[in-house]
């Protein structure tokens, strides 16, 4: 049951904003942080699942942005050179024409992440961190 106290920082307490491309609202965005005491390599994120108002969001419409780069979820496993500092916010972008409806939405995130130094019998420790937080969409 170690590390569970860090899950609180997974979803940042900020508003959900629209994802606007050249004046077109293509989706919406919110911020997440790495739920631990130190940062990690993006390659150590083994699973990242999101639910909005209890509905799972399809992976094909989620992007993950950090350090000035926007990744597909499937690309994360190869990013062993990109480091997610513990104080830095990553942006989750979800495609949805016209954005999200204004008001409160329940945002849930579940992340499975490998601890790259914690190895036992050839297997690395994989932690599952989950958080849910009502966020206001403007």
């Amino acid at each position: 049951m170690k590390f569970q106290a860090y899950n609180k920082i997974l979803i940042e307490e900020q508003t959900v904003t629209n994802y606007v491309v050249e004046g077109v609202i293509l989706g919406y965005e919110f911020k997440i942080r790495y739920p631990s005491y130190r940062g990690t390599y993006l390659s150590c994120i083994e699973k990242l699942e999101i639910k909005i108002d209890e509905e799972p969001v399809n992976q094909r419409i989620i992007y993950f942005s950090l350090n000035g780069k926007q990744y597909l979820i499937d690309e994360l496993k190869d990013q062993y050179k990109d480091y997610w500092n513990i104080l830095d916010e990553a942006t989750i972008t979800i495609l949805q024409k016209g954005g999200i409806t204004k008001g409160i939405h329940m945002v849930s995130v579940e992340m499975c992440h490998r601890i790259p130094y914690a190895e036992n019998d050839g297997k690395y420790l994989i932690l599952s961190s989950a958080a849910a937080r009502p966020l206001m969409a403007e």
Binding site: Y80, P116, Y117, E119
Partner: peptide, 12 residues
């Protein structure tokens, strides 16, 4: 420092 042996997915 750490020894993050497992940073690269699929190998040490």
């Amino acid at each position: 420092a750490y020894l993050d042996r497992g940073t690269v997915t699929g190998r040490d």
